[in-house]
Every structure is written in C-alpha cells, then in structure tokens.
Amino acid sequence: MKTAAIGPVIRCEKLTKRFGAFTAVDAISFAVAPGEIFGFLGANGAGKTTAMRMLCGLLGPTEGAASVAGFDVFTQAERIKQHIGYMSQKFSLYEDLTVRENIRFYGGIYGLKTAAIREKTDALLQRLGLEAERNTLVGSLPLGWKQKLAFSVALFHDPAVVFLDEPTGGVDPITRRQFWDLIYEAAARGVTVFITTHYMDEAEYCDRVSIMVDGKIEALDKPAGLKQQFGVSTMDEVFLHLARGAKNVE
C-alpha cells in the first residue's frame, strides 16, 4: 500500500473557500494520519461538500494551504486525483455494465495495466464472494452488494486516501455494519478513510471526528473525547449541541 507522505496524509491549514461574499469554508485546519478513519460531520449546508471537493481536486480553494497524499491542492490537483479514491451515496457504478466490466473500466481510467486489472479483479471478486456474479449486470445486484463493490472499486487503484461521501445513505443497519467491516479492513491495510455521514452511530466507529458548523470546524477529537468535552453520553447530543448554533442550514 502507498504510504506516500511521511506524517499526515491530509493536511489543511486555514483552508478557505468563498463564493462571492459567502464564505462556504472558513479557515479550517486539521491533519489526518495514514490509516486513520476520519469522520467529517456537519449539518447540510455547513460546508462539508465544499471542503471535500477542494481536497479531491475538484474545486480550487480561495486561500490557506492544503495537501493530500503529499500533493498541493492549489498546484497539483491533477496529481492528487491519481492517489485518491471516491465513493458517494449513489454507488457510482454503471448499472448496465457487468461487475467485471465496471471493474475493468475503473481500472482502465486510472491507467492500470490490463494484466494487473485481470489479476486484481480475480482477487477482488474472491474476497467479496462475487465470483459467480462476475458477468451479472450491476443493476440486478442487491443494494448491499452494489455498495461493497463500489467501495472496492474506489480502492482498486490502491489510493492513499479514500473519500466516502455519505456512503451508507438509504441502507439498512445490517448492511451498514457489514460495510464498516470493509472500511476497517481498508484502514488496517493503511488506507486513510475520510468519511461524511449523518448517522451518529457511524460517527462512533471513527477514530476521530470533526464537526463543521457554518464553514468552521467547531469540534475535533476522538468520539469519547468529544462526549466528555460536552458532558454528554452520545454523539447525537454532541452534534445537536453544536449544530443548533448554526446560521446556514439548508
């Protein structure tokens, strides 16, 4: 696995994004270590998506500094893309392509060699227990399988960081639990996991959690530390305590 940078894999210093007079992301600073599962929380409209887009190289920041996998978000956005994986709530797979064709396509656009793609495809299908389904159209797979497949495809090119944008939205609790097993496995292999979620039980699974309110990071600690800091017993209460003070709520 890639351990591109010594020290933090994601590093933000006063990273800011303004759209005209509106400051979507207001001087956020944090660092994420290799293999860490970093929960990125916030109400809708708090600026999570904008921050994530800047880190993925999709959106140019206004000021501050940030690097992902050792590359600068201002000047090396295209090189960042080679070293990150991405998965959203929409599963991001082509439903009219088979399992194998989807894997081959994503391997191809990340520039993997044909032989390597074949080899890794076999290994991946075996690990997921999907060998029998290799020529099945993704559209006809159950939701939980699609989700696991999408996650594995996001990791197919061995990225240093994987960005998960509400990956478990609309999924039942059992499937969500199984999905987290995959996340732990990936983190154990050294992949940094950057995840946004609205489920507070999932926030408990993270190594560390940051909570964004109105473009600023209002809290950042281990889940246990946060609960202690706000003197409450669940992450739900921590979140509500912070989010109630928000001005920009969708």
Binding site: C56, G57, L58, E78, K81, Q82, I84, Y86, M87, S88, Q89, K90, F91, S92, L93, Y94, E95, Y106, I109, Y110, G111, F163
Partner: peptide, 14 residues
Amino acid sequence: ETGTMEVLLVSPMR
C-alpha cells in the same frame, strides 16, 4: 443523474 460523473471527475481523466 447516476452520480458516475462525479467519479469520472475525481478520476485522473481530463
């Protein structure tokens, strides 16, 4: 609509 465009844009493809 299906969200695959986001994935393409995050990929190294120009």
